[in-house]
Design a protein around this nucleic acid. Structure first.
Length: 256
DNA sequence: ATGGTCGGCAACCGA
């Protein structure tokens, strides 16, 4: 099973990139964050033509998540707090029997703000949901944009960003609790060097070329699945296209 | 060099 994660910053604006990428890369599953589209307007037909089904949980203007797959799937759940949650940041489905959770964790703005508290609460609630519904012995994949860099090698200037949203000890504590529960960071299992990022801020000129990035997207898997992983990598090719996202595709492959 | 990003969606908000 080849699985990928991508923050699209509008799935509709990114359709040419995503369709080209699906055709060339042929992943089995693509988890998308920041779809920025209401469910009634989700471009399902375009993915169907490419041989993929899409399940999605969106809202107007902000957030929104989708799982795009060419494998059989069932048991779709929308919303960490159920269907009526105020921010569309969680969708899960069993794909070929494997539970896959796709998350868009809040960005958090700045410590001390309501947005930051909401981020910490959301991370706490995610762990509660996971530990209430799965055991570490189960097969489980959690992919998405976590908006947290965990270690100094996960961002371009750790000293500058120390204590800020995205690199704050309280966020990292929640991230570590999730890992300690029984999840393996599959990308880090295969890539131990610096300058390997998944996000480059649009507002920093030539951020990609200048290696001013962050690794805040993850594909996590429980031990039984991690034993079957065969690789994980970042694909920077879409950024050479005309309208790139400021995230790139993160991939992991499992022998299942 | 007194500027320098996107997208949604209609004035700013969020990243």
């Amino acid at each position: 099973m080849k699985i990928a994660s991508f923050n699209a910053n509008s799935i509709r604006a990114r359709i040419p990139i995503v369709i080209d990428w699906l055709n060339s890369e042929q992943p089995d599953v693509l988890c998308v964050q920041e779809t920025k589209v209401q469910d009634k307007d989700f471009p399902s037909g375009i993915f169907k033509e490419a041989g993929y089904s899409a399940v999605f949980h969106g809202q107007k203007s902000y957030n929104g998540v989708a799982i795009i797959t060419r494998l059989p799937f069932d048991r779709v759940r929308s919303g960490l707090y159920g269907d009526e949650d105020e921010q569309a940041r969680f969708i899960s489905s069993y794909i070929s029997g494997v539970p896959v959770i796709n998350v868009y964790i809040p960005q958090g703005f700045a410590p001390g703000t309501d947005k930051f508290s909401y981020k910490l609460k959301w991370m706490e609630d995610l762990l509660s949901y996971v530990s209430d519904n799965y055991t570490p012995e189960d097969p489980l994949i959690i992919a998405g944009d976590f908006n947290v860099a965990l270690e100094p090698i996960d961002l371009y200037d750790p000293e500058q960003h120390e204590g800020q949203a995205g690199y704050h000890p309280d966020e990292q504590a929640h991230m570590r609790k999730l890992l300690d529960w029984g999840l393996v960071d599959i990308f880090r299992k295969y890539n131990t060097g610096a300058d390997q990022y998944t996000f480059w801020d649009y507002r920093i000129p030539n951020a990609l070329k200048r290696k001013k990035g962050w690794r805040i997207d993850y594909i996590l898997a429980t031990a039984s699945l991690s034993e079957k992983s065969i690789g994980s990598w970042v694909d920077t090719r879409p950024r050479s296209l005309e309208k790139p996202s400021d995230h790139t595709f993160l991939l992991a492959e499992f022998e299942i």
